[in-house]
């Protein structure tokens, strides 16, 4: 059995968690104000995930505008650099809608990169 200290990053409360790990499993969490702290501790121990955000270039012909993009869901921290490369290689040439998938299954994470904003041409 081991105890691991972590800080929940789910919301600005930033609860300081103490996770108890037995047989490679989180069996107890202390210090959390809500149940999202338990979900966070389990995920943070097993495979830390984060929402990745960046921008893509939309070439309108007249000028290039920036489209903010995000991973639709959190992706493993380890996949971030690969996902960033895929994003910087993608150039857009059409209007986009907020939530529209721009890269499917980025870096084999099973998560899409989607537009964070509606940008008309």
């Amino acid at each position: 059995m081991k105890k691991i200290k972590m800080s929940c990053t789910t919301c600005p409360n930033s609860c300081e968690l103490l996770a108890t790990v037995e047989n490679d499993q989180v069996v107890a969490v202390e210090g959390n104000l809500c149940k999202r702290g338990v979900t966070f501790a389990e995920s943070e121990y097993r495979c830390p995930v984060r929402v990745l955000t960046s921008t893509m270039i939309l070439d309108t012909g007249a000028k290039a505008v920036m489209v903010p993009v995000r991973s639709a869901k959190p992706i493993p921290k380890a996949a971030m650099q690969d996902a960033m490369q895929a994003i910087s290689k993608t150039h857009l040439h059409h209007a986009v809608k907020m939530g529209e998938a721009l890269i499917k299954n980025v870096a084999d994470t099973g998560v899409d990169i989607v537009a964070s904003k509606t940008v008309l041409m």
Binding site: C11, P12, V51, T53, T55, P68, R70, M98, S116
Partner: peptide, 18 residues
């Protein structure tokens, strides 16, 4: 463009533009 907005108002993690 980062995420972290809307946790109280929309109960989900949005980016600024969203």
């Amino acid at each position: 463009i980062h995420a972290g907005f809307g946790l109280h108002v929309f109960k989900e993690e949005l980016t600024g533009p969203e």
